[in-house]
């Protein structure tokens, strides 16, 4: 895979407005995805974070504005060429019952194949590599529906890797996973980042987002309210303003990142204890 590139963004949006029917979700939004790092989009429910990811991946067509991929207007690129440059994992994808892991991951080669060239030695190599990188090579012959949620998510990520891109868009890759599996999947995402991938994802869990991202995009009501390194962005004021969440931001005892400690209405020992941190 390629090494960390320069700062020029491979993927970005300029003045995009996106809406469903009569509702505008994103209003004249600009964003640039830095290359070679993990960017995570966070925000309260309904803030438009999934809509932003879907717009960047061309699943949604903006009413105004353009999405740029490697300097090209993504709307003018051929669908197949977009798929060769960018891998996409939508929320809760489905696999037909009985489909094996190897068959699913092999389907990731689709953009590189044609009717007469349905399986080349290139395809075999890339798929084998994708299976190994995601640690699912041993499961290659198992049906996808027999796997645990975490393994299944690894397999899907493996499929997007088989597309042979180093730009991956993941829409809530940890939904429905228990914490141990969520950590496992997101560690894998971090491995991919280490190997040179640029990653954009939407996450619900704020602390996972803070721990694993180099760049946070914080959204509220269809606009970006903050963007940057988690250590610079995450403050208790921001959490209160965007999420309506009373929280303390402390130093994470195991990483060099902030840690969000939510304050609910109950189970808070006393005000003075909080101030002691």
């Amino acid at each position: 895979m390629t090494a960390l590139r320069n700062d020029a963004a491979r993927l970005g949006a300029e003045g995009v407005t996106v809406g469903y029917a009569d509702r505008v979700v994103l209003d004249n939004l600009d964003v640039a995805i830095p290359t070679g790092v993990i960017t995570t989009v966070i925000g309260p429910n309904g803030c438009g974070k999934s809509t932003l990811l879907r717009t960047l991946s061309r699943l949604l067509k903006p009413r105004q504005g353009t999405v740029l991929l490697d300097g090209h207007d993504i709307a003018r690129l051929r669908t197949k060429d977009v798929a060769k440059r960018m891998g996409l994992l939508p929320q809760t994808p489905i696999a037909p019952e009985g489909l094996t892991v190897a068959d699913l991951v092999a389907r990731g080669r689709h953009p590189h194949q044609s009717w007469v060239r349905q399986w080349s030695s290139d395809d075999a190599d890339v798929v084998a590599k994708a299976l190994r990188m995601t640690g699912v090579a041993d499961l290659a012959h198992r049906p996808v529906d027999s796997l645990s949620g975490g393994q299944r998510q690894r397999v899907w990520i493996s499929m997007t890797l088989a597309q042979g891109t180093d730009l991956l868009l993941l829409d809530e890759p940890t939904t429905y996973l228990d914490l141990a599996h969520a950590i496992d999947v997101i560690d894998l995402v971090d491995d991919l980042h280490e190997s040179g991938c640029t990653i954009v994802m939407v996450l619900h869990d704020l602390n996972l987002a803070v721990r694993y991202s180099d760049n946070l995009i914080v959204m509220k009501s269809g606009a970006i309210v903050a963007q940057g390194h988690p250590s610079d962005v995450i403050t208790s004021d921001l959490l209160l303003d965007t999420f309506g969440l009373q929280a303390k931001v402390i130093d994470d005892p195991v990483s060099e990142r902030p840690l969000i400690v939510p304050i609910g209405r109950t189970h808070v020992v006393s005000k003075s204890d909080q101030d002691l941190g």
């Binding site: 991946s57 994808p93 699913l104 389907r107």
Partner: peptide, 22 residues
């Protein structure tokens, strides 16, 4: 001829679009 393009569509529309299928 079209069946080749249908193969990713078994995974739903979003995945198919991500794999370059109209």
């Amino acid at each position: 001829v079209a069946a080749f393009q249908m193969r990713p569509m078994h995974f739903g529309d979003d995945v198919a679009a991500g794999l370059g299928v109209r």
